[in-house]
Amino acid sequence: MYDSSDLRKGLKITIDGEPYIITDFQFSKPGKGQALYKCKLKNMVTNYTIDRTYRSGDKFEPADLDEVHMQYLYKDSEGFHFMNSTTYDQVSLSKDQIGEARNFLKENMEVDILFFHDTPIDISLPIFVELEVTRSAPGVRGDTASGATKSVTLETGYKLQVPLFIKEGEILKIDTRTGEYVERVKR
């Protein structure tokens, strides 16, 4: 059971028996008055978004979800396919359900798939993934100012800003929560 002080972006709760994720959260409190917790919530099954305002003392059931460890296989016109490496069961998620996670998905990667009553609805990535640089513009000569960056493309097609010394073919550690470069990984 959560209460209103647990509410934050990313928290998954049950409303009318269905799982919702908080996509936007605002705490407000007038001086000497009760706090209000304004939330935008996305239904994790239908993807519909709703607005709700909660007060101190309100209680919430966590979303009733199961997390299953799976391997990413491939994508095709139907979506993204995953396999349970113990049972060999296969499931798929649509492009909408995968969302931003597609930027970091590489074949054979181990991920967690979230199920609501046996239906796969969402993916949970590892915090850090390692991906290869497949295209990189050469660094601009003479620009040695600290903090200078350039754009590169990773093997998933994802583009991001990295320090100038990064070269094509190198492996980078990426934070999947922010989509940002963390460090270069030695082979």
């Binding site: 002080s5 605002q26 705490f27 407000s28 409190k29 706090a35 101190s56």
Partner: peptide, 9 residues
């Protein structure tokens, strides 16, 4: 103040 966390808290 316990539980006060937001853009202004």
């Amino acid at each position: 103040r316990k539980g006060e966390r937001g853009r202004h808290h």
